[in-house]
Design a protein around this nucleic acid. Sequence first.
RNA 1: GCCGAUGUGGCGAAAUGGCAGACGCAACGGACUUAAAAUCCGUUGGGCCAUAACAGGCCCGUGCCGGUUCGAGUCCGGCCAUCGGCACCA
Length: 861
Amino acid sequence: MRSERRKPYPFDQIEPKWQAIWEERQLFHAPNPGEKGFDLGKPKFYILDMFPYPSGAGLHVGHPEGYTATDIVARYKRMRGFNVLHPMGWDAFGLPAEQYAIKSGQHPAVTTRENVAKFKRQLKRIGFSYDWQREINTTDPLYYKWTQWIFLQIYNSWFDPETKRAEPISTYRGTDPDSVRLAYVADVPVNWCPELGTVLANEEVVDGKSEVGGFPVVRRPMRQWMLRITVYAERLLDELDKLDWPEGIKLLQRNWIGRSEGAEIDFKIDKGDQEIRVFTTRPDTLYGGTFLVLAPEHSLVDLIVTEEQWPAVREYRERTARKSELERVDLSKEKTGVFTGAYAINPGNNEKIPIWIADYVLVGYGTGAIGGVPAHDERDLEFAKKFDLTIVVVVQPTGDEPAIGFTGEGIAVNSPIINGLTSAEAKKKITAWLEERGLGKRAINYKLRDWLFSRQRYWGEPFPIIWKNGKHRSLGENELPVVPPSLDDYKPTGTGEPPLAKAKEWVRYSDKALRETNTMPQWAGSCWYYLRFCDPHNDRRFVGEEAERYWSGIGFQPMSHRQDANAAAGIVDLYVGGTEHAVLHLLYARFWHKVLFDLGYVSKPEPFQRLVNQGIILGEDNQKMSKSRGNIVNPDDVIDQYGADAFRCYEMFMGPLEQMKPWSMRGVEGVARFLARVWRLMMIENQAAEWELSPAVKDVDSTKAQQKILHATIKKVTQDIESLSFNTAISQMMIFVNAFTNVDAIPLSAMRAFLGLLNPFAPHTTSELWERLNAKFSDARGGITEQRWPTYDEQLLVEDETEVVIQINGKVRDRIKMPILATQEELKSAALSNPKIQDRIAGKTVRNVIVVPKKLVNIVV
RNA sequence: GCCGAUGUGGCGAAAUGGCAGACGCAACGGACUUAAAAUCCGUUGGGCCAUAACAGGCCCGUGCCGGUUCGAGUCCGGCCAUCGGCACCA
């Protein structure tokens, strides 16, 4: 048993005290336009954390890393006069609650409520300055009513390729609007996970296994809801340029969208009138195309297979269909395929080439068919070697590599129309040639697939859709929210039919119409939560127009800030969260936002202007924190022992925010010591062991040196918060405190300014000290959170004298004090006449002298 | 395989091309104490020389090899290692 150790300072009393005061006074509530306390003169700042999934395990120290960073910025921005939107909520639909329900029989709503309460209590203990009046929960019918409403907007829209925008479906002039809706139903090969009893999005499948649970996933065609995100591929790609995101994350999204430029070429079938369209990025290799390969699922396969090849083709297709995603993706395996018996004509040279099917060609990419160019494509080469197909070299490498297997750019050969051209020129020319003859055209392809949007689960948003005579139709807005039925049995049916189908009463919408029984994926709620935070209690609109415009920085900003605000493409000024959402949440949210933007519901084209990813916190053993390793650190334990302020400061002091770094309890202790030193700078323990204000704190002027270090600290902390370099900001404040330790008189004004700087990091301790100062001195009014951020005077930082380094051949040999204004000549002569230097250069020729004013003199001999 | 990030003391880390290791941890020594804890003060990259001691001096050092530069942790080229992402995308 640890003996009840005396606290180095009474954080256990002051932290709950200040948390209660903040809550009671609602100090961190951000008023909306029209609300009491709203100040038109303040610019807005929207700073958002990726909201958590409230799991049963509660918070671990990784969560509050990003939250602390944003909280520091939020508190700082408030002190700089911003109206700061800093909300928190719960992304609470999803598998774990449902899995738990299956095991325990407890309704997911109950577990969700308990988990949320636990998370909220833990977050409050850390002293975050969230505007809790704006708390939202994706599983609240008042919230998901609007998730369903947005789905209806998507469902009732189409993408006009002319304007490249979403438009209401009523503007569509074609015959079958259902074929162009942004939400549609399709029979698609999906990732079916038998163990979970549900289909998964491509993004939820990792190495052929489910991301959740690691269960095997197989391909299987099913009727599913899809969202037509692919029509936005171009904009999702191009508009990344406007965002202040880490380049790495932008790159991940670019790769995920996977734009590639090339041509679509039509190959006539030898005996028959069909054509096979292939996509290629290398139209310049057309003459080297010695066979075609179709994906096994390609729709033309049925039409072209010859009688004698049927059994082999059928067998191959069945085998492919049975394969799990893992088997199919396995690269180490050999290429497989079957000849269809049919031939096509290469439009370049009119040669007859065989048509094969093989599972290395994917039905979902391009046209699901390729022209095999074995000489210049690794996969085609492997395939051609295995099945003994013709190999023709059509690109000559400019270096001395072998031509067969050369996939780079070179010079076209054996290609009558383009011989002698570079690959780039050849691409252009052959594409133009094909276009003239109606044999092909320039084409752009994206790797991005449409978003598989339905799940066979209980704990998710039901679709606001009903089925009648085999056709789907949307419910009216007045029928929202569609609330899921309560069920006794949440288990997946195992057949792929969703659990909601078990609620027979609920499913029956009317005599002739049935409800859609799929639910939305977990991503749905997080696709727009940042919008709801702007106006969380609006019951007439998903977000009020005025609130949306205000928090987007439009219309209401003071003139001085208007330009900045309008330059931003995104509504959220700073968004902090983990990298794991680089291509899932962040892409889906951008997509929804763009649809809403096109339809005129939001004023900015992007959701998140600046994105920062916090690094993962490892256990003390340098391993990823996990239950099995037993290295998980619980914030509650840390706070019990060292207090919330020490916890916050340590999270920031560990190292750069974006870096992965290990936890260290010793490190927490060090930071706790720093806070205790701050405390004792102003407080002293009396005979009765009570803390009282130290008599050393006096309303006196700072010494010159103290003034200098104060202003240097203001400057550094200000700049470091702006650049999110919290670790070095804390270092500087430690230097400040060290400088004031053991001095006789502690100047009040310096302490006031310092407490302001430290407040965003350690809000409880600084609030308490501020209040204690107020009790004795009358130089300041109000609580610390109402104070303006300290400013620094550059003049006070200027030194009269500076230490100049003297180097010989780049090596430091001596240091001299020189006036700050010393000229280059003065520095040079001072260096050369320095006795130590004279000794060293005696007898040598000085060849060059480099002088860097205020810094150094380098003598080259 | 392709793409990206990272590599600095015993540890977490800091350094607009200009004194490498700020700040913190740990360790060691000292003060205070009956004692310990706490606190305060000091030392602390490695090697060598020197001295009675204090002081002082020299060399090496930011994953490895090379380059640019008066000067490189920082810029350029090549490699190695670790982590992350993508992975038959035609």
